[in-house]
Nucleic acid binder design. Sequence first.
DNA 1: GTGAAAGCGCTAACAG
DNA 2: CTGTTAGCGCTTTCAC
Lengths: 330, 330
Amino acid sequence: MTIHDVARSAGVSRQTVSRALNDKQALNDKGEIQGATKRRVLDAAREPGCQPSRFARGLVRQDTVTVGLVIPDLLNPFSTEVAAAALGAAGLRGWHVVVHDTSDHPDKERATLRVIGSQVDAVIGYFSSPEEEIDRGTRGVPVVLVGREHRSPRFSSIRVDGADGIRAAVGHLVARGHRRIGMLDHSGHPEPSDRHAWFAAAAAPHGVAADAVAGARQSVEGGEAALPRLLAAHPDVTAVLAFDDVIAVGALRAARRLGRRVPDDLAVVGFDGLRLGDLVEPALTTVALGIGRLGALAVDEAARLLSAPEHPAPRAALAVHGALLPRASA
Amino acid sequence: MTIHDVARSAGVSRQTVSRALNDKQALNDKGEIQGATKRRVLDAAREPGCQPSRFARGLVRQDTVTVGLVIPDLLNPFSTEVAAAALGAAGLRGWHVVVHDTSDHPDKERATLRVIGSQVDAVIGYFSSPEEEIDRGTRGVPVVLVGREHRSPRFSSIRVDGADGIRAAVGHLVARGHRRIGMLDHSGHPEPSDRHAWFAAAAAPHGVAADAVAGARQSVEGGEAALPRLLAAHPDVTAVLAFDDVIAVGALRAARRLGRRVPDDLAVVGFDGLRLGDLVEPALTTVALGIGRLGALAVDEAARLLSAPEHPAPRAALAVHGALLPRASA
DNA sequence: GTGAAAGCGCTAACAG
DNA sequence: CTGTTAGCGCTTTCAC
């Protein structure tokens, strides 16, 4: 059912249909269409499945921007908050967002990369593939990487800088008498993580070692499983810094199971500043990133790349910084 | 930068470019393009911003299906799980999903309705607008409503049926000695809710009254604020059924603040079966819906409407049913 | 106010 | 194996 059919069934020409469908109100300054005609056309167009092709329309009016948002796992609260923030920022610009959940799976990420480039005007997301693969998949469209470096000038990235926040967290723990601080690091890709490096750098001046580390999968269960391992290997640990809030929540659960009272027997500090941290008991002390700001920055960057494709990133270091958010767990 | 430009700069015709860009590997059975030519073209096309228009492509090859997913608030874990489920089900079909978060705001919902119809092939979602408005906004595309009835034949819906689950929950509470059961109902739109009706129907046979009700906003804070009101008005209440898990989690927090031990001093039962319920302490007893199934059903329905636009819903009552999931809070 | 023409960028059929 | 021809369905000039 094209506008041609509608035109025939309403006894007018295609253009009249187009006008009826587009000119919401008859513009008086350039009288486009008569009320009666318009009504007749709209009636004819009322049938199901009668819908102007978005492709044909998009071909002619290059207006609606669509960005692809790629996240590893929407059910992970961190992804959820990033997605919500990006959705909000994109909504402010009237952009549409197509969300791709890669399930933290290299294959699904590759599959996403294979199709996303041809369906959106820009890409924002978390990727674990090598940059070359990302480049190939997104051929032509601007890419904003979150929490990851880049080389291609077509790319931009939002860095996550937790150095200061983690320094503050370590200072906080030391001030409370902790001398042996462990870390539940992310057991994924580049190991040890940046966050571990920040931790080590912050611990050294206090004469605190940073070698009590256990790897955790990035889930509550991962954190829950990792804490006992950490404590078994390093029984003198009295405080734990987690790679992120989700792992920290798992650590909280494990601590309860182990009969360790938080924060008295064991202090727990997370990273990210998720809302989830405020729901658990005790509320999670954490290094909070402004995730809302992260999403907004990413969308802004996408907009900049879109409007000036040739310019490499000018603001050298686009980043969100972590800040210690003391709550009850440490 | 169109394929025309690429063609010129590579010294070939447009179609050769098209072939190079589309035929991933030179198909031997119908040898489309030579490796050398292809490479030359791809090199020429390597520049930034050089990307075949998805509109032009979509116009010709009607393949990629895009569905619009409308949710009230991605940060609400219920929405998150629905979105994740829908994303998963859509991914299985190779569909793309554009997500619209209406922030639980009638204005934003209207704004979404205004644009969504012209950008997607089908719509799945939660709406609070009157059906007529939804109809107007989605003119032409199939719509699958979640948790809500419909009249238009172009619509379909996935019903949430918690009657059995709530009956089981009430039975469970009564068996544990509770004689006075309160409800934290949703303070939104149609009040009292279906869920309250199911509660009342389930309570009556046990001689339990269903008049101890307090309204809660649909958030943890909402539940947290509502529980004290409920208990103040009805001090004899020993068990609480919440409109959903999020509100129930709020009730759990409030109970702790009030010094009521759960489940000994106060039993709490949620609704939805969110993962969140398993993270809190004590773990939430709840009436669990299969949310994964809900998302899959919605996508299947969209597919059915898409392939047979004229047929009204045949499977009269597409629904997900709640089942009691006993954990620790009741 | 409405109709006719042109063309958006691409791919699918055929020629060569 | 590559180039030429014709649309996909719509909007935007321009005449009428």
